[in-house]
Computed example of a mutant assay.
Amino acid sequence: MIENTISKLATWLSRHSIDVLRVSLGLVFVAFGTLKFFPGVSPAEALSVATLEKLSLGLLSGYAAQFVIAAMEVFIGLTLVTGRLLKTGLVVMTGALAGFFAPYVLFFTDLFPGAPTLEAQYIFKDIVLAAAAMVIGARALGARLTPGPSLVFGKPATGPHPAYDR
């Protein structure tokens, strides 16, 4: 009975978990992007604007830079939530993620005057967003998650599983 339940759960998760990840990541991008449309609302506003100013060699600054970032994040989020233009959204997200981590290079001493600042910690969480994007990108390019042998109480139900038996 337990093995049957676990098998059904594994099948359900293999069918739906990446879509749930895609939509939830999209909602995060829409939420954070929407905040940037309103000056003074996003806690990352100053850092994101300063980063885009540097990366664009001063071509974009102030509210124009903030608007571009906001529009880009909302676009990425909407492609993830709806699944439409997903590959385009993932390409844009690749550039955005590079921009997310750029402050570590551009403003390292400001972000780490000793202990990491709140902004440095804020950026650090983007590692999880990048990992989620990799899983979603793999699915968009044709990879599939399929259920393998089920685990019962942390032990493989049938034979060893290389990811869990280390």
Rank of each mutant, 00 (worst) to 15 (best):
K36M: 10
V68R: 02
A157L: 08
V74C: 08
F67P: 00
D165A: 11
A96F: 12
K54T: 07
V81D: 03
F38W: 13
T11G: 04
A131Y: 12
F112Y: 14
G114Y: 07
V135E: 02
G89C: 09
T94K: 01
T88L: 14
G83L: 07
A102W: 06
K155S: 10
A163T: 04
V74M: 10
L59R: 15
P156A: 13
E119F: 04
A133Y: 11
A71C: 07
T94L: 14
G148R: 07
T117Y: 06
L35P: 06
V30D: 14
F38N: 03
K8L: 06
P113G: 05
F67W: 11
V28K: 00
L59Q: 13
L27A: 12
M72N: 09
V20F: 07
A140T: 03
L151M: 15
L59N: 06
R84E: 01
F100R: 00
T11S: 15
L80Y: 03
T11Y: 15
Y104V: 02
F67V: 05
A46D: 15
L111P: 02
A44M: 15
Y122S: 10
T79L: 07
V68W: 00
M1W: 00
P43I: 13
G137P: 01
F108T: 03
S61Q: 13
M72A: 13
D126A: 00
M1N: 11
I136E: 01
L106E: 02
